[in-house]
């Protein structure tokens, strides 16, 4: 299946600072990809390059187009939410809907209105009158109406409480996503999206340190919980990451024979949050 997004040697400098450092990746259709990393890792810069918002070096193809020169055309196929702060505060909800109808050729107003009918948002509200949670709902309602092939979300739930965060991702999964659509999400709060992802890309210091489908993680990474007295021996197998628990040690191994680890304790597939920390700290130490 042809990739929607292909990056080869994608690099971005801000002055002398290298925000994205020769990264290669592909995003295939029908996937929910999490681009995660700590603050300043290069997530938003990568997204901005995909969306044609910044200059970059290297090759980047999105829907067969060059985003540097074809941003407006790309936006027919891509729907983008940066965060709740990007909606203009002065605009009224009805004006916003009017704008979407006029500018997006494939916008379905009914879908947005159906979604909004289940919220407390009125068409006469101005954005500045809405709470952060309501703004997110409105943004999601807008996204529902756009018949885009790919949805790009950059920290979409930043500053929201846990109720709205959970609701946002539940609605996204249940009401927006289907096998024809692709979602690319960046966040540094991996624990709240790990249950919806099909693929993970972990970026740190401008480099992609892990890039694979979620269901392949178990083939490459193994988590071991071992008693403290056995930890020393397990450590000889060169874990990628280790952290102390109450009376145990938790270790994550990369490309290690899982059968050898069974003698030290409980072996399992690592949680994304632990893998994220392992990948970031691992690349930090490298």
């Amino acid at each position: 299946m042809k990739a929607l997004v292909t990056a080869k040697g994608l690099t971005k400098y801000y002055g002398r600072f290298r925000a994205v450092d020769h990264v290669d990746f592909e995003i295939k259709p029908g996937r929910i990809v999490g681009l995660v990393g700590p603050n300043g890792a290069g997530k938003s810069t990568t997204l901005k390059a995909i969306l044609g918002l910044i200059k970059y070096r290297g090759e980047l193809e999105v829907f067969g187009r060059n985003p540097r020169i074809e941003r407006a055309q790309l936006m027919h196929d891509i729907s983008y939410i940066s965060d709740v702060a990007s909606l203009p505060e002065w605009i009224r909800v009805d004006q916003l809907l009017d704008l979407m109808v006029s500018t997006h050729p494939s916008y379905d107003l009914r879908k947005s209105l159906n979604f909004l009918a289940r919220t407390d948002i009125s068409k006469s509200h101005r954005i500045k009158q809405l709470s952060k949670g309501m703004k997110t709902q409105l943004h999601l309602a807008i996204v529902m109406g756009i018949n885009a092939r790919m949805l790009v979300l950059d920290e979409p739930t930043l500053g929201l409480d846990i109720i709205y965060r959970t609701e946002f991702y539940d609605q996204l999964l249940n009401e927006y996503f289907d096998q024809q659509r692709t979602i690319l999400i960046t966040t540094h709060q991996i624990e709240e999206i790990e249950h919806i992802l099909t693929d993970i890309m972990i970026i740190n210091k401008g480099k992609i340190v892990i890039n694979m489908p979620i269901d392949e993680i178990g083939n490459h990474y193994v988590q071991l919980k071992t008693a403290k007295e056995k930890a020393e021996q397990a450590r000889k197998l060169n874990p990628l990451y280790e952290k102390d628990l109450l009376n145990e040690a938790l270790m994550i191994f990369e490309n290690t024979d899982a059968h050898r680890l069974h003698e030290f304790g409980e072996v399992s597939t690592p949680h994304l949050a632990d893998l994220f920390v392992a990948a970031v700290k691992g690349s930090h130490h490298a």
Partner: peptide
């Protein structure tokens, strides 16, 4: 200044327009 440029650029509207 108000960061709404990210929203405006998410619309299929060219810079020329």
């Amino acid at each position: 200044k108000d960061r709404t440029i990210l929203f405006w650029k998410s619309l299929p509207v060219s810079n020329k327009q």
